[in-house]
Design a protein around this nucleic acid. Structure first.
Lengths: 204, 204, 204, 204
DNA sequence: TATGAATGAGACTTCATTCAT
DNA sequence: TATGAATGAAGTCTCATTCAT
């Protein structure tokens, strides 16, 4: 039976999750400290541990929350019509995710760079299935002659890599351009260029 | 006055740098421990600290070494002729770096995701200059009508993002495909697809 | 002014004392936690602290309650007639206490093994007086030639030691014999053997 | 392969074991703190942890060391001749152990009162076997008519209980008599009385 | 009465660094 | 050069206790 969660509990847990996402994003699991998270959430350390019993528990909660949001951004892949529309829609969704959840994206990146000790299971299930469906769709386009013959999985990797790059490497991007995805013009320009190149690269 | 470095010193330092690169790659600066590095190098902790006085010092050495290799992979950008040849050559170089120095790539990624506290200066100088030169070249191609009108900096980001993705996210890639860049066929297929799409996207 | 105690108060306090006795018995004062006690009493921690303001306070209450029961088991020492009857009655009483209050016995043992920081005063008064009386009785028996010449205090220690051993070391006893004092046959056998040996040892 | 232990290591480990025995004796496993142990050994806390990686590890070492000494005090049970000699010798050994290792005795007592979570295995093996041998010897005496018919296991418990009582409850004994086993006269008197009663109780 | 929420003190443990040899 | 020994600082987590309702 799920414990009832009072209003304040929900608020505090979300405050903690947000703070934790930021901190884990910057330092990874081992590098992050509970102190930092509690500070950022404006809470005492023991109080944090009142809501999440261990550091690992809060990390898991962050990963789970982020994974859910991330998977949502992949759900609508097949609803639209032509390859062009579908790809555009997909890239849009991924760019949105990078802009709206840059810290979450980095938590993911960190976890995967550490060998994905925790995510491995989840990736191996939900994501694998999802990716399987998507690559089958792309393969269908190739077979039907709607796009050039390319290896679907690498197209997926390209889209992920590029869109996430704007979130994960924002420090580098900002150093080089002075801009981040929060800059509306820069955001549109990036999206436009990426869509332009990828569409140009796969459409006949 | 530069200390004389004996043969064994040079060997040990390199052994340590290699080990440190692996460990920092997996856990970031704060998450990595000197013990791990010493263990992986088959050395005692005090002995490690004989060669590098502090944890930060060895981290800096790793970053510097990696940055140098990374910059080298960008040097030859302008030597070749046509846009097509240049881009192909560039992507090849970046893929090679990802295959041959995956740990170095991840150390970079980690550092940048932490906000690049240390690299910021270097990135702000050497890299900025290099990127400036490259984007000017691309702009020239656009002006000359050799390629479609695209925003150069985003093309650069795309190439970096995609090629580094294969190193940084190898855990995810391996989970989904069962392959890594060490698999020769997979390596070629990835490279081919990426080149195909990007070239297709920018060439007229 | 004594606070009025409602029915529920009395019930809850006794529930808490029983739980606390078990927990203190297993872990000693420092090792026991308020959480454990509250859990075992089926009560919330703050509610426990409503009844007993501090951990020490509940510990004192447990000690006091146990000491009272323990002293009661020594009260009747002098009422009966012959040495034989008196000793048998005494050993019976002590065995009963061990069987009926094994946890209490262990709380005692723990307290004394920690140096009896709290009990010291009580032991130094009530018990000393009681023991004084008892040893005088035994001495009288010796002088009157009713029993062999033995040192009374060590006889007392023997009886205490042996009878309490069955409560305090029940884990060891159970491991070796598979039985506890709850086993009626084992209980009778133990009592019979102890009485047999001690009586045989002191009677002429 | 066993790590080589230098002279200083052996000295420090023994210093720590001695201190730990004292502290665990007083407060049990959970109640004892590493700080106390380190302090008592005149060592810093991290240095203690350099020799024993965890609190549990040092506790195990203490238990093991004590168990070995304790078992040694039981070894010679069968070597001597008559029941009388054997019992006297045995009680002497047990008294010696109580006088020479009172803290070790209390560590044992604490462990067993907590339910012997760790010792259970050891007790279930070595001790069970040893006790089995001893009770068989006593049974033989009974069958041969050398001693009165008594239940051997309870005789063993009596001897253990009484002799250990002088170590485990020394605080109570000191409060009541002002003496401890360190007092030579008191030691002899206790031993004499116990031997007198037990022998008187079992010999015909 | 009863309890969810909060916290300071302190416990165990890790780790970068230093010392002595 | 190399390493066993030692430590202060910091990190995770526990726990008695208090607060607010």
């Amino acid at each position: 039976m799920q414990k009832k969660r009072s209003r304040i509990q929900i608020i505090n847990q979300q405050k903690l999750l947000d703070a934790a996402t930021e901190v884990f994003a910057s330092y990874g699991f081992r590098g992050a400290t509970i102190d930092q998270i509690a500070d950022m959430a404006g809470m005492s350390k023991p109080n944090l541990l009142y809501y999440f019993k261990t550091k690992k528990e809060i990390y898991l909660a962050v990963l789970e929350q982020t994974l859910n949001k991330w998977l949502q951004s992949l759900q609508d892949w097949m609803v639209t019509g032509t390859p062009e529309e579908t790809i555009i829609n997909y890239i849009n969704k991924k760019f949105e995710f990078s802009r709206d959840h840059p810290a979450g994206s980095r938590v993911f990146a960190n976890e995967i760079m550490e060998g994905a000790p925790i995510l491995k299971n989840l990736l191996g299930e939900d994501l694998k299935r999802l990716v399987g469906e998507n690559t089958r769709v792309i393969k269908g386009w190739v077979t039907a002659g709607q796009i050039r013959p390319i290896e679907p999985i690498h197209l997926m990797f390209m889209i992920w890599a590029v869109t996430q790059h704007y979130a994960d490497f924002s420090a580098q991007i900002e150093t080089l351009t002075g801009k981040t995805l929060d800059d509306e013009d820069f955001y549109k320009q990036a999206k436009k260029t990426v869509i332009q190149i990828i569409l140009g690269g796969i459409l006949k």
